[in-house]
């Protein structure tokens, strides 16, 4: 084990860096998609609601690994071989991975956001509207601040799931932790030690994230007591 750490330690740490990079890219766009579709699913407009429902339904109904193959191999094939566009469309593994994570995590985030907004008592909205505040102002000043408190634990949970889901993207060749560990195992033949180290690395990062989440929740509860 010591041998693996001395020989491949820095490689694995760099690979963890790639994992975090991919997760951050994915989460960034997932937040944007989540907010957009979350709001589309709560506004009083049937068309918007249906669009949001289709997005969530499709993404949730397809396994992430299929989504990864579809985006990485399928989309370029569509453009280059079926539609025969002039310039070849090539997606890097990072781009394709980011799209997959953003779609996947974005769909779950939009559900968390919808749930959070709907969990705020309708009386809060009615009180604000009865004072003459317009719909969006009410959302901004009254509903969203309360909804975010409700959402935070679920959102951080979703972040952790997404961080772990980056490992699935080893199948499209992105040099994240699992992919790099496969090479280490192939070079050393020490499967037990390699995967134990990788497991512990994930565990450390996710434990740290959980601690941050707990601290954040405590702070929000503290604010509420104020």
């Amino acid at each position: 084990m010591v041998q693996i750490i001395t020989n491949y330690g820095s490689l694995l740490v760099r690979a963890m860096g790639q994992t975090l990079l991919l997760a951050l890219c994915g989460l960034f766009f997932a937040c944007i998609l989540g907010v957009i579709f979350g709001i589309l699913s709560v506004v009083k407009n049937k068309v918007c609601n249906v669009i949001a429902a289709i997005f969530v339904g499709v993404v949730r109904g397809v396994p992430m690994i299929v989504l990864a193959f579809f985006v990485f191999f399928g989309i370029p094939y569509l453009f280059n071989n079926i539609l025969n566009v002039e310039h070849d469309v090539i997606l890097t593994a990072l781009q394709a991975g980011t799209i997959c994570l953003a779609l996947n995590c974005g769909a779950y985030m939009s559900e968390i956001i919808r749930g959070g907004i709907q969990a705020v008592d309708i009386g809060q909205t009615e009180a604000a509207r009865s004072l003459g505040l317009p719909y969006w102002r009410t959302m901004q000043r009254i509903v969203l601040p309360q909804a975010i408190r409700i959402m935070i634990p679920s959102i951080i949970n979703q972040f952790i799931i997404t961080l772990k889901d980056t490992s699935i993207l080893s199948v499209i060749g992105f040099p994240e932790l699992v992919n790099s560990a496969k090479n280490v195992q192939a070079n050393t033949f020490k499967a037990f030690q390699t995967w134990a180290i990788v497991g512990i690395m994930y565990l450390i990062v996710i434990t740290l994230l959980s601690q941050v989440s707990k601290a954040l929740e405590r702070r929000l509860d503290h604010d509420r007591e104020k």
Binding site: G123, A128, L131
Partner: peptide, 13 residues
């Protein structure tokens, strides 16, 4: 037009 509700509906935040 002011309105007062059965369940008060003060802004909790």
């Amino acid at each position: 037009v002011g309105m007062v509700f059965q369940h008060f509906n003060l802004f909790n935040n």
